[in-house]
Design a protein around this nucleic acid. Structure first.
Length: 480
DNA sequence: TGAAATGTTGGGGCG
DNA sequence: ACGCCCCAACATTTC
């Protein structure tokens, strides 16, 4: 067997797609058979093994990837970790001489990958790792002084000053398989799906998979991106792209998003400030920024970037935390958001800010508790985005909201959900209340409550805290 | 990608 | 006609 005919291994991770997948393409350009493998090794991800909602998504996305590969004459091999032994065993079983993968940026995974790379090379196996997840690598963007950025706007400006990202690559045409594919596990043997069927609502909302992701992106760009700058702030409308889980699992690449957003909107390219494409891709920019921060300040997954917050007197209030998690705070916009999260594994971004502000500033509970809850319940749970978002809203992170920026859940509700559509959908027990009090049921008069069939404290909670009081306490605590 | 407190302005009611 | 007050509307400051 000549060396070029020796198979390659493509190790799939957060790049569950065939198109614009540099590791996959590089492997197939060797014109030798390829073994595609996914290795389930959650305990190698440090404190952040995939949460329950992420595992749900992963299960279905792996199934779709396997279908895609089979349609092209290959298949997805499933194995359980440890990763190192698994890859070494696979090279032995198949005679593979090279392993390809796309890079990840989570600190524990980076350390693990470095060990894998070293061991494989030591064993004489070639390793090729490529970028598939970011427009700009964290180490390729730096301030004039050669330091990492800590403020978003100059960071993104520096990114946009660089050459545009390459156009996305098509999926490889031929996906030649090895003659005797090694044995793998059944998908069900990874036990990714929940034992208690809390995921029923997910199936109505999500169809994981690369082709579905591309359809969603195309539809968003064709039909909704033009309304994005205004519609994105209205949680009762489908104004956002909802592509976050696609990007997290790599069903889509940011390059595909970038090019499609620009190409189909020639009059509103990213170069035009305030244009729809510009406004939308700025959010992709925040994703880039989150990875930039995670790479340069990996300690932020557990401690605040701003060290003065290290000793902040967060409250430990299990009952209040539970009320927040369950969507039982008595503030409709907060409860609606947390219930949307529980029911669908996702929450509108604007509402994430409101519930985050409420947890960290009204309840004075640590952002880490919120980050943990989101980690377990979001289908788009992403260590970079989750960490940045929570530190941002708590005021202790990069380019963070100042500590005195405290969202008023009533005025935010009335401003963004004036007709109560969002709140009524996710908190149906108060849906009969008139618009005037839908965001403040405790101010409804007894007649209104009776007509709506509500007794406060029985059918819907009294507010767990008085926002005005809580705000003053937060300002005092943060002031120190 | 706030909200509340405080300050300023100007129209209108009224003696 | 004039000055005074009230207060809504808007602007600025503060947290």
């Amino acid at each position: 067997m000549s060396d070029t005919a020796r198979p390659s291994i493509v190790w799939f991770r957060h790049d569950l797609r065939l198109a614009d997948n540099p590791a996959l393409t590089a492997a197939f350009e060797r014109e030798s058979p390829v073994v595609c493998v996914f290795i389930w090794a959650p305990d190698e991800e440090g404190d952040w093994p995939p949460g329950a909602a992420s595992r749900w998504w992963l299960h279905h996305s792996l199934a779709r990837l396997d279908e895609q590969l089979r349609a092209r004459g290959n298949r997805l091999l499933l194995r359980r970790g440890p990763t190192m032994e698994t890859l070494q065993s696979l090279t032995t079983e198949t005679g593979a001489t090279a392993v390809f993968w796309n890079r990840r940026y989570e600190p524990a995974v980076v350390r693990r990958d470095a060990r894998v790379l070293k061991e494989l090379k030591h064993a004489g196996v070639e390793v090729v790792h490529t970028n598939s997840a970011l427009l700009f690598e964290p180490w390729d963007v730096q301030t004039g002084a050669g330091r990492p950025y800590q403020v978003f706007t100059p960071f993104w400006k520096a990114c946009l000053a660089k050459p545009a990202p390459e156009e996305p690559w098509p999926a490889p045409q031929r996906l030649c398989e090895v003659a005797a594919p090694p044995a793998g596990l059944e998908l069900s043997e990874l036990h990714l799906l929940p034992r208690i069927p809390w995921d029923r609502g997910f199936y109505d909302v999500w169809q994981p998979g690369e082709l579905e992701a591309q359809q969603e992106l195309s539809r968003f760009v064709a039909e909704r991106i033009g309304h994005y700058p205004l519609a994105r702030d209205i949680p009762g409308e489908a104004g956002t792209s909802r592509l976050s889980p696609r990007l997290h699992f790599g069903e889509l690449s940011p390059r595909q998003v970038w090019w499609q957003s620009n190409r189909n909107n020639p009059g509103s390219s990213i170069q035009v400030p305030g244009s729809p494409a510009n406004t939308f891709l700025r959010e992709i920019g925040w994703r880039e920024f989150a990875h930039h921060i995670l790479h340069h300040f990996p300690q932020t997954v557990r401690s605040p970037l701003r060290e003065r917050f290290d000793n902040f007197p967060w409250r430990r209030d299990a009952a209040a935390l539970k009320a927040w998690q369950r969507g039982q705070t008595g503030y409709p916009i907060v409860d609606a958001g947390l219930r949307e999260l529980w029911a669908t594994g996702w929450m509108h971004n604007r509402v994430r800010m409101i519930v985050g502000s409420f947890l960290t500033k009204d309840l004075l509970i640590s952002w880490t508790a919120g980050a943990r809850w989101f980690w377990d319940t979001l289908v788009d749970a992403d260590l970079a985005n989750n960490t940045l978002g929570w530190q941002w809203i708590a005021g202790c992170g990069a380019d963070a909201a100042p500590y005195f920026r405290i969202f008023n859940p009533v005025s935010q509700g009335e401003k963004l959900d004036g007709d109560g559509r969002y709140v009524r959908r996710w908190a149906p027990e108060i849906s009969q209340l008139p618009d005037a009090v839908i965001h403040r049921p405790w101010e409804a008069d007894p007649n209104e409550l009776q007509r709506a069939g509500i007794e406060l404290g029985r059918d819907y909670p009294e507010p767990v805290v008085d926002h005005a009081v809580a705000r003053k306490q937060a300002l005092e605590a943060y002031g120190k």
